[in-house]
Amino acid sequence: MTHPSPSALQAGHLRTHSYRALAPGPRLLVLGAVHGNEVCGTRAIEQVLAEMDAGEIPVTRGTVTLVPVTNPLAYALGQRQGDRNLNRNMRPSAIPQDFEDRIANVLCPLLEAHDVLLDLHSFHTPGAPFVMIGPQNNTGTLEPFALAEQELQLAVHTGPFRVLEGWLDTYARGVQRRASAQSSPSLVTDPNYGVGTTEYMRSRGGYAVTLECGQHEDPQGVAVARHAIRQTLALLGISPLPLVPPQAAPDILRLVDVVDRAHAGDRFAREWRSFDAVAAGELIGTRHDGTAVKAPQDGFVVFPNPGAGVGQEWFYFAQRRA
Score class of each variant (00 low, 15 high):
residue 53 D to S: 13
residue 46 E to V: 06
residue 51 E to G: 06
residue 132 M to F: 14
residue 276 D to M: 00
residue 10 Q to I: 14
residue 294 K to N: 05
residue 134 G to L: 03
residue 221 G to K: 01
residue 156 V to S: 09
residue 312 Q to E: 14
residue 202 R to T: 09
residue 109 P to M: 11
residue 140 G to Q: 14
residue 4 P to F: 12
residue 96 P to N: 08
residue 36 G to I: 03
residue 214 G to I: 03
residue 25 G to L: 11
residue 113 A to F: 10
residue 42 T to Q: 06
residue 159 G to R: 00
residue 171 Y to V: 14
residue 97 Q to P: 04
residue 297 Q to K: 13
residue 96 P to F: 11
residue 209 V to E: 10
residue 305 N to G: 05
residue 197 T to P: 01
residue 170 T to D: 06
residue 186 S to R: 15
residue 305 N to V: 07
residue 149 E to I: 10
residue 188 V to F: 01
residue 216 H to M: 04
residue 83 D to N: 13
residue 22 L to R: 15
residue 218 D to C: 07
residue 68 P to I: 09
residue 199 E to H: 07
residue 166 G to K: 00
residue 178 R to G: 02
residue 32 G to C: 06
residue 114 H to A: 06
residue 275 F to R: 10
residue 96 P to V: 08
residue 212 E to Y: 12
residue 217 E to H: 13
residue 305 N to L: 08
residue 179 A to I: 01
residue 59 V to D: 04
residue 138 N to D: 09
residue 185 P to G: 04
residue 10 Q to V: 15
residue 207 Y to L: 01
residue 59 V to K: 02
residue 221 G to W: 05
residue 38 E to P: 03
residue 89 N to S: 12
residue 147 L to D: 13
residue 305 N to E: 05
residue 126 P to N: 08
residue 235 L to F: 05
residue 303 F to V: 13
residue 275 F to H: 07
residue 236 L to Y: 13
residue 135 P to Y: 02
residue 136 Q to L: 15
residue 204 R to L: 10
residue 211 L to S: 00
residue 104 A to R: 02
residue 124 H to T: 15
residue 167 W to S: 11
residue 77 L to F: 08
residue 84 R to H: 05
residue 117 L to R: 01
residue 108 C to R: 12
residue 4 P to N: 13
residue 271 E to P: 09
residue 211 L to D: 10
residue 310 V to Y: 10
residue 88 R to S: 00
residue 162 R to C: 10
residue 176 Q to D: 09
residue 149 E to C: 06
residue 174 G to Q: 11
residue 171 Y to H: 14
residue 302 V to P: 13
residue 75 Y to M: 06
residue 299 G to W: 04
residue 125 T to Q: 14
residue 91 R to G: 11
residue 318 A to K: 07
residue 257 D to P: 02
residue 43 R to Y: 12
residue 57 I to N: 09
residue 2 T to V: 14
residue 2 T to H: 15
residue 294 K to P: 04
residue 154 L to I: 05
residue 120 L to G: 09
residue 145 F to C: 01
residue 304 P to I: 06
residue 232 T to E: 03
residue 42 T to A: 07
residue 240 P to K: 02
residue 8 A to P: 08
residue 217 E to M: 04
residue 249 A to L: 11
residue 119 D to E: 05
residue 77 L to Y: 02
residue 193 Y to F: 15
residue 281 G to S: 06
residue 219 P to E: 03
residue 166 G to L: 00
residue 241 L to E: 11
residue 192 N to R: 15
residue 208 A to D: 14
residue 151 E to Q: 12
residue 309 G to I: 06
residue 217 E to Y: 03
residue 185 P to K: 03
residue 12 G to I: 10
residue 260 D to H: 11
residue 234 A to Q: 06
residue 38 E to Y: 04
residue 180 S to F: 09
residue 125 T to L: 15
residue 17 H to V: 10
residue 295 A to I: 12
residue 229 I to W: 08
residue 318 A to N: 03
residue 292 A to W: 05
residue 273 R to L: 14
residue 308 A to D: 02
residue 281 G to P: 03
